[in-house]
Design a protein around this nucleic acid. Structure first.
Lengths: 340, 340
DNA sequence: ATTTTTTGTGTAACATGTTACACAATTTGG
DNA sequence: CCAAATTGTGTAACATGTTACACAAAAAAT
């Protein structure tokens, strides 16, 4: 790999001059500039970002940690982050943590070791980590800013971007109630703040609409497709059988729909189904899946925005907490054909 | 950000000793080791990878360039790459090029500037770039290895991993012919090697099965969903109307199916549809989409494998070219119910 | 007890850039 | 035409690590 010294030698100038040419800083005569430029081209020289960042102490690198790259939710969020950051000259360093405590800590350390200028951590639920603060402390103590997507109680002043899960679940449940269902099964996710909040929305909608809650209607899943399938099998056994199902995320809702298909139960005529997240699959599957719309792209963008404003110190106050609102996309899976 | 000097000072030893503790190299007494370890913990010190890579001239970073992170094909491929590389201690630097010449060149330069140890470039079709060699030359001239996913004529000895498009298209077409269709419309992609090859498979299957080709049945798309929808509208106008459609990728096939749905044409009874890539959506949509299976994950893995073998010099011969074989996943979209 | 070997630690050079400062060559102004 | 201002270039220090080499202390061998 060629270095600035080789370029300097080939051009017959000092390294300082080469640096000036590259960074277009200070005085350089046209004649010299051309000589240097030519040497650079011949050697295919590119400045070593590592060495560069030693002096400038900025790498233009942002660490992004997501639990699962394959999950459409995080994917779209990443897209929002990437679009915003790329434009500002930053480049992303992706890493997958798989909702694992240890792994998460490792990747944060790895980011620090690469001297990222900042990092964005995403998780379905940070509360599961015994001590989230311990994970991010190394970053903060070294003045590397961190923003979070999700739920945390932190003693640090940290920016977070979240989503109004209570309201979202409320909307979906209310919609089902308004469609005349009074027995709505719930496919829940793993124990987490996110699940709790979505449950709360489900609950409140019942209360506000004077429909009594039946704990027997709650079946637990793990946010993955297969668990949705399994949960639906259990629901089909129930007696009396619920006429509607609300799944805490789309992937489980889709699993549930597959179970219904396999058992020749028609959606929405016999059982209506609603999901959460509004991933792209909702419009692909038939009947199309009613779902709570989460502005994933915008959430990503906001995360990036928060981070950058911290980094360039245009903001340095207490931890901000932006909660994005919900909207329900009503589709075929909850609207009987004669009602359409 | 704390440095090795601060650790050394706090522990009352020299930087060399701290370095020894961190890298577990050379002799260090237990007592000293503990003192240093403690200082590291207090300061939350992490070695600066940038400085480290200055001396070791290895960053453990691999650049990965894909045209579109949102495309399920590249996504799964990335997963294969990531899984393989992560295990070996490498970390990925993702970048999106959007099938753009300029952008691609930029990102390669960016990778070099970050002194990646190697890079993997993916494209649907490299031939579209006027001079692909010019893009990768800076890397190769600096001894940074490059592997490609796709089609290129290069003067360099470069490893490539591809897929047998001719055979894949042949299988899909043959299947449709065997199902009794003699008039099969083709939704083609943008002009590219990939399209040419898939066309060749379509053509050869016709010839081998003694069915005459009808150029009027070919409609051009751009590999995106909407173009599949539009193409299908044109196909529906044809007279006589074809009884089957083969789309050069799944995304277009799905667009086509949506058009058929909107026009209440039943699949596969009135028109059979087959796609290419076997993305996850094939199993989500109804009827399930018959598609050519591309071992995306394995292709990603192979790319990573090729790269690493070049990097650690366990291989340094001429450019390898691995072509993965095809298989057809037959699903509902091409098999009439009474035949099931 | 002396020599040899092993263990433990520090000094200084190097990897690749940036940049403050010094100095020389031009150009400008009176 | 000479002082002042501007322009052009080099030297050397610094950023943060690794490591060869030197040297001292402790342990083992004779």
């Amino acid at each position: 790999m060629s270095s600035i010294y080789q370029v300097a030698e080939m051009a017959g100038v000092s390294v300082a001059t080469v640096s000036r040419v590259i960074n277009e800083r200070g005085y350089v005569s046209e004649k010299t500039r051309l000589k240097v430029q030519e040497a650079i081209n011949i050697l295919h020289y590119t400045p070593n970002q590592a060495a560069q960042s030693l002096t400038t102490s900025s790498t233009k690198l942002i660490g992004l940690l997501v639990p699962d790259i394959n999950n459409p939710v995080f994917l779209e969020q990443s897209k929002g982050i990437n679009d915003y950051l790329k434009e500002k000259g930053y480049i992303l360093m992706y890493a997958e943590s798989g909702e694992d405590d240890e792994e998460m800590s490792n990747m944060v350390r790895r980011f620090l070791s690469n001297r990222v200028d900042g990092m964005i951590l995403c998780s379905r639920d940070f509360t599961q980590f015994g001590d989230m603060d311990a994970i991010i402390e190394p970053a903060l103590k070294n003045n590397v800013h961190v923003v979070l997507n999700g739920y945390v109680d932190s003693k640090f002043e940290i920016d977070r971007v979240g989503f109004d899960n209570v309201r979202g679940a409320y909307l979906a449940t209310e919609h089902l109630l308004k469609m005349g269902h009074s027995s709505i099964a719930l496919i829940a996710g793993t124990d987490s703040t996110i699940s709790e909040e979505r449950y709360r929305g489900y609950r409140e909608a019942h209360i506000d609409n004077h429909v009594s809650l039946n704990p027997a209607l709650v079946v637990k899943g793990d946010f993955r497709q297969h668990s949705g399938y399994e949960a639906m099998l259990k629901i089909l056994q129930m007696n009396p059988r619920p006429t509607a199902v609300f799944a805490m995320n789309d992937v489980m809702a889709i699993g549930a729909m597959m179970a219904l298909e396999d058992h020749k139960v028609s959606v929405p005529d016999e059982i209506a189904v609603a999901g959460f997240d509004d991933i792209i699959w909702c419009s692909l599957i038939r009947p199309r899946l009613t779902s709570v719309v989460q502005p994933k792209y915008e959430i990503g963008k906001k995360l990036a925005e928060f981070l950058l404003s911290r980094m360039n110190e245009s903001y340095s106050g207490p931890g901000r907490h932006e909660i994005f609102g919900s909207r329900l996309a009503v589709r075929q899976s909850t609207v009987k054909s004669e009602q359409q």
